[in-house]
């Protein structure tokens, strides 16, 4: 039984990582991903509910064996306190995007309509442009972007995925592999 397992399929997997808020901890994590050749799709970091603990959401393109290694390697970092995987089925996942779109007066109404359909928001209007804010899962953000493209997207920024388990369970109360 020494053969490596047949490669399970690669997919986008989401890890929530809790870590002490110490200088250099973010570069420790990003360095680890580069060094071990893991393929990150997005990485976001910010404060958590606990003071001095930061919370990171990482989306990696990985199969089961790789994801297990990612989690174990993250645990080896001294300031990482918790690693857990969250699944689409039992967690909410959101991303925020700001899109600056070309919007001369003739096209504003049409853009406004699209924005309403997506339940997005116009948060800034100038003579020939608008900034639109959208929150949702990646596919929703992507479809809005593709619909706005023909109008001319001047600038775009996306936060990457953040995730939270539904119900009373917390990321701090679960552990990778359980």
């Amino acid at each position: 039984m020494s053969l490596p397992p047949p490669d399970s399929t690669f997919s986008r997997r989401t890890l929530v990582v809790l870590m002490e808020d110490k200088p250099g901890v973010l570069s420790h994590v990003s360095n680890l991903f580069r060094r071990r050749n893991y393929n990150i799709e997005s990485l976001t970091v910010g404060h958590s509910e606990t003071q001095d603990i930061s919370r990171m959401t990482v989306v990696v393109h990985a199969n089961d064996a790789m994801l297990e290694q990612v989690a174990k390697q993250l645990y080896k970092l001294i300031n990482v306190t918790k690693v857990s995987e969250v699944n689409t089925d039992d967690a909410v996942m959101r991303e925020l995007a700001l899109i600056k779109v070309h919007a001369p007066s003739a096209q504003r109404a049409e853009i406004k309509q699209v924005v309403d359909i997506f339940r997005a928001q116009i948060i800034d209007v100038a003579l020939d442009s608008m900034v639109i804010e959208i929150t949702g899962d990646e596919s929703k953000v992507e479809s809005l972007i593709s619909i706005l493209k023909p109008f001319g997207i001047k600038e775009l920024t996306r936060t990457g995925r953040v995730a939270m388990i539904r119900g009373s369970l917390t990321a701090n109360g679960t552990r990778f592999g359980s």
Binding site: M1, S2, L3, P4, E68, Q69, K72, Q73, Y75, K76
Partner: peptide, 27 residues
């Protein structure tokens, strides 16, 4: 790695969990 100890079950003792199943499947 794929040709190593084809007939063996493997028990792996290590203090570092990241070393387990890194290159070789462990039973």
């Amino acid at each position: 790695a794929g040709t190593f100890a084809p007939n063996a079950k493997i028990v792996h003792v290590d203090i570092d969990p990241a070393e387990i199943a890194k290159r070789i499947r462990v039973d």
